[in-house]
Nucleic acid binder design. Structure first.
Lengths: 232, 232
DNA sequence: TTTGTTACTTGATAATTATCAAGGTAACAA
DNA sequence: TTGTTACCTTGATAATTATCAAGTAACAAA
């Protein structure tokens, strides 16, 4: 199940892709290995070919807070190479054997300097990314956990466009809990309550929502959050 | 007291500034007027000359959640003009008479297309902004409110570089509370507790911290968050 | 001056959420 | 098969945080 969020490489034309591929190199990590650590100089971005990469930060108590999990097709650290100082703002490791294609920041910079249309497109891409991050901020300052959960549902529902009122949880519930800023126990109980009230059905990692408006009513949110992509 | 966070106009050289100024226009808003609303087409960015602009989103209960307050020198919506669809992701209004200089997105785009160095610099600028947003996300998923508060102290301390262990709260406490995702009452009590323990002193909007390490100990954070700008 | 308004504080109480502890389940390797 | 491990759930309890209510302080408008 490849992750297919848009990435900056998709903005390249065929010739540019070839140029970049010619300068790329392969990297294989074994289970448990670290791809980079927070603060490391960001020399390259990474495309996942097979396997899985977890992007995380360490919390003060030493636990990992997972920001994102990249599957096949995911592009890692595409923003870090534009930061000053050019450092990875998080750490990344793999839980299983993973093959990556690496693109150096120099090779990407060259393309951008030589093609101002591409640079403008990347600017637009980053603008959208900023918008998404602001949406996440919005979600996390919603007062209570059930609202955050439902807003998360809305978020992935708009992205996924499954059949019917169905959505797929892309992560384990433990990871989802850290993304919502709650404990796994609380998440489990919240889901239970919604299931018990008949507002959602759960089977494996798939959630169906009989009625978005009833669900939103339950947690005091406006149903429009489920409407197709006003901004996302 | 001008707000002086870096902005993209500072990346322009003198000639470019003149070009842009020649195409700019002035706008004056009276107290209570709205500059733009979430979802409006983002035609321009705005520099505050005098007055104050509040950037906010409406919460489901109808209250405003303030994201940022722009004072003289602040540049508003510099990211929105790069989004697709090109819409403001939040609303903005003024509480007092405010004079603004407006720069159209077209005039800025022209500069970027004609100067690839500038475009690269703006890319770097946006990368940094993304890093800051990720830091904010990190802060908001910290488990408890006192940790968020202390991380906020660290954040503005690194930005401000005042004399001694002093920092200035740039917003009202009500605004600060919404930014931390807590109620004003809780913020008041948290500050009280820290004051009572002698870990901070408060006078007006100025906070002094006798010992960063003691403060961090109190809330179980590593003192390094106060160290000069590892990434910010 | 008074009057209103807003920010801020404080107290009492209720709701939410975390923590701790224990068990269940599924995947997987030896 | 048996462990082993990680994930998930459930229960009991404690801590955190919100809500409601009231009061103070600061400040602008009349």
């Amino acid at each position: 199940m490849p992750s297919n969020t848009p990435n900056i490489l998709q903005l390249l034309n065929q010739a540019q892709k070839s140029t970049l591929d010619a300068q790329s190199y392969q990297l294989t990590l074994d289970a448990g290995e670290c791809l980079f650590e927070k603060g490391d100089s960001a020399e390259a971005i990474y495309m996942v070919n097979t396997g899985k990469v977890t992007l995380y930060r360490l919390m003060p108590n030493g636990e990992e807070k997972v920001f994102k999990v990249f599957l096949s097709g995911g592009l890692i650290a595409e923003m870090a190479i534009f930061m000053t100082p050019r450092c990875y703002p998080m750490s990344a490791h793999v839980d299983q054997k993973t093959r990556l294609t690496c693109y150096s920041h120099e090779s990407i910079n060259e393309l951008l300097i030589s093609d101002s249309d591409l640079a403008m497109n990347v600017l637009g891409f980053m603008g959208n990314r900023i918008g998404q991050l602001m949406n996440s901020l919005d979600m996390l300052t919603q007062v209570n956990a059930s609202q955050r959960l439902v807003m998360y549902f809305a978020d992935i529902y708009r992205k996924q466009q499954q059949q019917g009122n169905k959505l797929i949880l892309p992560n384990t519930k433990k990871v989802l809990a850290t993304q919502l800023g709650i404990t796994p126990e609380t998440l489990s109980r919240l889901l239970n309550k919604l299931k018990f009230s008949g507002l959602i059905n759960e089977s494996g990692s798939s959630i169906t929502v009989p009625s978005f408006s009833l669900l939103c009513d339950e947690v005091n949110l406006v149903p429009s959050i489920f409407k197709p992509t006003i901004n996302s």
